[in-house]
Amino acid sequence: MLTYLARRLAFAVTTVLAASVVSFLLVHASSGSPGAITAGAGATPAQVAAENHRLGWDQPLVTQYLTWLGHAASGNFGVSLIDGHDIWSDLMARLPVTASIAVFATLLSGVFGVLIGVAAAVRGGLADRTVTVGSGVALSLPQFWIGILLVYLIAIKAHLLPATGYVAFSASPSQYLQSLALPVITLTITGTAIIARTTRTGMISALRQEHIRTLHALGTPPWRIRYVHALRFAAAPVVSVLGIQFIALFGGSVIIEQLFALPGLGQAAQNAIGTNDFPAVQGVVVIATVVVVITNLVLDLVLAAIDPRVRTA
Results as ranks from 00 to 15, higher is better:
residue 268 A to F: 14
residue 268 A to V: 09
residue 268 A to Y: 14
residue 268 A to Q: 11
residue 269 A to C: 10
residue 269 A to D: 05
residue 269 A to W: 06
residue 269 A to Q: 06
residue 270 Q to P: 06
residue 270 Q to W: 14
residue 270 Q to V: 15
residue 270 Q to T: 13
residue 272 A to S: 13
residue 272 A to Q: 08
residue 273 I to M: 11
residue 273 I to E: 04
residue 273 I to T: 14
residue 273 I to V: 15
residue 273 I to N: 12
residue 274 G to K: 03
residue 274 G to Y: 13
residue 275 T to Q: 13
residue 275 T to P: 00
residue 276 N to W: 04
residue 276 N to S: 15
residue 276 N to Y: 07
residue 276 N to M: 05
residue 276 N to T: 12
residue 277 D to P: 12
residue 277 D to C: 09
residue 277 D to M: 07
residue 277 D to T: 07
residue 277 D to K: 03
residue 277 D to F: 07
residue 278 F to N: 05
residue 278 F to M: 14
residue 279 P to Q: 06
residue 279 P to I: 03
residue 279 P to F: 08
residue 280 A to V: 10
residue 280 A to W: 01
residue 280 A to F: 03
residue 281 V to W: 09
residue 281 V to P: 09
residue 282 Q to E: 11
residue 282 Q to A: 09
residue 282 Q to H: 05
residue 283 G to W: 02
residue 283 G to H: 10
residue 283 G to L: 03
residue 284 V to G: 08
residue 284 V to I: 13
residue 285 V to N: 06
residue 285 V to I: 13
residue 285 V to L: 10
residue 286 V to F: 12
residue 286 V to D: 06
residue 286 V to Y: 01
residue 286 V to C: 03
residue 287 I to Q: 13
residue 287 I to P: 11
residue 287 I to L: 15
residue 288 A to K: 06
residue 288 A to W: 12
residue 288 A to P: 04
residue 290 V to W: 05
residue 290 V to S: 04
residue 290 V to H: 05
residue 290 V to A: 02
residue 291 V to M: 03
residue 291 V to H: 03
residue 291 V to E: 08
residue 291 V to W: 04
residue 291 V to N: 03
residue 293 V to Y: 11
residue 293 V to S: 07
residue 293 V to I: 15
residue 293 V to E: 07
residue 294 I to D: 00
residue 294 I to G: 00
residue 294 I to F: 10
residue 295 T to G: 09
residue 295 T to I: 03
residue 295 T to Y: 01
residue 295 T to R: 03
residue 295 T to C: 11
residue 296 N to I: 00
residue 296 N to V: 00
residue 296 N to L: 04
residue 297 L to K: 00
residue 297 L to H: 00
residue 297 L to D: 02
residue 297 L to M: 07
residue 298 V to A: 13
residue 298 V to Q: 02
residue 298 V to R: 00
residue 299 L to I: 10
residue 299 L to N: 13
residue 299 L to M: 15
residue 299 L to D: 10
residue 299 L to W: 11
residue 300 D to H: 01
residue 300 D to C: 00
residue 300 D to N: 03
residue 301 L to Q: 10
residue 301 L to I: 14
residue 301 L to T: 11
residue 301 L to C: 09
residue 301 L to E: 07
residue 302 V to K: 08
residue 302 V to I: 14
residue 302 V to M: 08
residue 303 L to E: 08
residue 303 L to S: 11
residue 303 L to G: 13
residue 303 L to T: 09
residue 303 L to Q: 09
residue 304 A to G: 13
residue 304 A to E: 06
residue 305 A to N: 06
residue 305 A to R: 10
residue 305 A to P: 02
residue 305 A to Y: 08
residue 305 A to S: 12
residue 306 I to H: 03
residue 306 I to L: 15
residue 306 I to C: 01
residue 307 D to K: 06
residue 307 D to T: 02
residue 308 P to G: 08
residue 308 P to F: 01
residue 309 R to N: 11
residue 309 R to W: 11
residue 310 V to N: 09
residue 310 V to T: 07
residue 311 R to C: 00
residue 311 R to K: 14
residue 311 R to W: 02
residue 311 R to Q: 09
residue 311 R to V: 02
residue 311 R to P: 00
residue 312 T to A: 12
residue 312 T to C: 04
residue 312 T to W: 01
